[in-house]
Design a protein around this nucleic acid. Sequence first.
DNA 1: GAAAATTGCAACGAGGAGTTGCTTTAAGGT
DNA 2: ACCTTAAAGCAACTCCTCGTTGCAATTTTC
Lengths: 199, 199
Amino acid sequence: MAIVELKKMTTLQSRGEAFVREVLNVTLLELAENGFERLSIPQIATLAGVNKTSIYRRWPTKAELVSDALKAAMQLADQAPDTGTLRGDLVELARTVANFIQSPVGKVIVRIMLAEGGNPDLRALAQTSYGQANSVGPWAVIKRAIERDEMSADADPSMLLFTLAGAIMHRLLVERAQVDQAYLERLINLVLAGAAARR
Amino acid sequence: MAIVELKKMTTLQSRGEAFVREVLNVTLLELAENGFERLSIPQIATLAGVNKTSIYRRWPTKAELVSDALKAAMQLADQAPDTGTLRGDLVELARTVANFIQSPVGKVIVRIMLAEGGNPDLRALAQTSYGQANSVGPWAVIKRAIERDEMSADADPSMLLFTLAGAIMHRLLVERAQVDQAYLERLINLVLAGAAARR
DNA sequence: GAAAATTGCAACGAGGAGTTGCTTTAAGGT
DNA sequence: ACCTTAAAGCAACTCCTCGTTGCAATTTTC
C-alpha cells in the first residue's frame, strides 16, 4: 500500500486537521468568487473531495463555516512601510490596501462588510478583520509623519486613512480600473496637497 | 359595484400599467432590502398583490425585471448646487451623493455595481445609472470653481470627485457611520487643503 | 358585444439544501 | 497487535422554493 505511506509522509497531521484545512481553503476561494449567498455547501464538499455530510456535522450553519474560514485566513500581520517620507509611505500604504482588497481574503471581507442584511455576527467579524488587517501600518506612518513635521499634529488621520481606503475601493469596485503607480501618485497628491488653488 | 368604480377613478390607467408600476415598485424596494441574489419573484408577487405567473410571463428573467425597475426609477435629474464657493458646493455635492447612496434606488445601484460575477448587462446598466445620476452637478461645480480661480485649471477633477464618492461610500457602507455636517466639513477640508503640513 | 390579449389560479416538475441511519475508516490507548 | 471510540463516507429521503403549464376568468379593444 504505497499510497497510504505516501499520505502519511505528506500530511503529517491527523485526518481531521487535513480535512478542516482543505474545507476552509475551498470555502475561502468559493466565497471570493461567488459571495456568501451563492455559496453552496454541497459544492464545497465536491471541490474539497469530501462528503457534504461531514461538513454539515462540523459546521451547523454556513455562517459558522465562513467565520472559521475567515479566522483561519487572517493570520496576516500588516506591515508598516518606512520609505523615509510621508508621501512614499502613503503610496506604499495605498498599494497595500489595494492588494488586500484584490486578494481572496480581502474580497471576501469586503463583500461581507458591504452586504446588507446578512448575518450580523459574520459582518462584525469581517469588520474586525478589516480593521485589524489595516491597523498597525497606517498609524505608524502617521506617527512618523508628525514627528518629521510633515503633518501637523492636529491633522485628521482617520479621515485621511478612511478616505484613502474609500477612494481605492471606488477605483477598484466601482470604476473597476487598475490601481497602478500613476493612479497612486495622483491620489496621494490630492490628499496631501488638496484641490484648492494656492494663493 | 362601487368598488370597481372607485378603482377606475383612482387608477386612471389601464390594468397593465398599474400592474407594471406596482411590480416594479415592489421590486425596487425588495432589491434595496435583500439584494439581487435573495430577490424572489414569488415574494414580489405576494407583496404586489399579483400572481407570480403574470410576472414570469412579462419578464423572462430576474435580470430583465430588475433592469426595468432601475430604468423606471432613474428619472431623477441631478442638480448642480451653487452656493457661491467651491467649498460650499462640494459640501452640498457630497451631501447629495450620500443621500443618493442611502436612497432605495441608490442602494440597489451600488449593490449591483459592487457585486462580483452577477449579470454583466445589469451591472453595465447600474454603472451607467450611477454615472448619469452624478454627472451634471459635479462638473458644473468644478467648472465654476476654476472660473472663480478657487481651483487651478490643471487640477484633477475626476480624482477629486471619485475620491469624494469613495470616501462617502466607505463612511456609509464600511464604517456604517453617519454622514452629518461635521463629517462633511472634515472631508471637504481634507480634499481641499490636503493633509500635508504647510511650510 | 365579440374577439383577443392579459391576468389569476392550481397543480406539477425539477433541483438543491439539509437530515438521518448505517457502514467504513482512521486514531489512540492498553 | 487489538479493541474501543470518534470521525468521515455513503445513500436515501424530506423539504422547500423556483419556475412552468393548462385552463378559467377578466379586461381591453375594435
